[in-house]
């Protein structure tokens, strides 16, 4: 299949990549750009491990073609540095094996950007797109709430 050269803007840097039009954004991030923080978990949009932020919204990068990301700003886990969400996940022990963690963090980061005052139902509907198999979600819930409510939930547990 013929490859095409496109320019992607990922984590604030422009990169020219040679891709097949059929390549998913996840594949190109991992294979062409070496950004392996976004994980393949199901390649079917069911688990959220590959979540990145496109524009201002979270997107499962396995469900999007890389070519669709041209002219859009893509942020991956590698694009976050010492973000509040990252700190909260560490402090609250909100991961074990860590495989789902980048996807969760990107989703929560985007939730915070879009709905900093999100209520329980909104949080639940956003978080429903990701699966964590190690924790019982208790620690993730604590981390998410600590970020969204400015730490008010932090001392509750």
């Amino acid at each position: 299949m013929t490859k095409v050269a496109v320019t992607l803007n990922v984590n604030g840097e422009e990169s020219e990549v040679l891709i097949r039009p059929a390549d998913t954004l996840l594949d190109v991030l991992r294979e062409n750009l070496g950004l392996t923080g976004s994980k393949p978990g199901c390649l079917n949009g069911d688990c959220g491990a590959c979540t990145v932020i496109v524009g201002k919204k979270p997107m499962k990068s396995c469900l999007m073609l890389a070519i669709e990301a041209v002219d859009q700003n893509v942020t991956t886990i590698e694009g976050l540095t010492d973000a509040t969400v990252q700190r909260a996940f560490v402090e609250h022990f909100a991961f074990q094996c860590g495989y789902c963690t980048p996807g969760f963090i990107m989703n929560v980061h985007s939730l915070k950007e879009n709905h900093p005052e999100a209520d329980g139902e909104t949080i639940k509907s956003w978080m429903d797109s990701n699966i964590c198999r190690c924790t019982g979600y208790e620690e993730i819930e604590a981390a998410v709430k600590s970020v969204l409510y400015g730490g008010q939930e932090h001392h509750k547990r």
Binding site: L35, K39, E78, F89, F93
Partner: peptide
């Protein structure tokens, strides 16, 4: 805090 915590929240952890 687990030793590999920072690797895991930054996407640098390698599987």
């Amino acid at each position: 805090i687990r030793k590999e915590a920072l690797e895991k929240v930054t996407g640098k952890a390698k599987y």
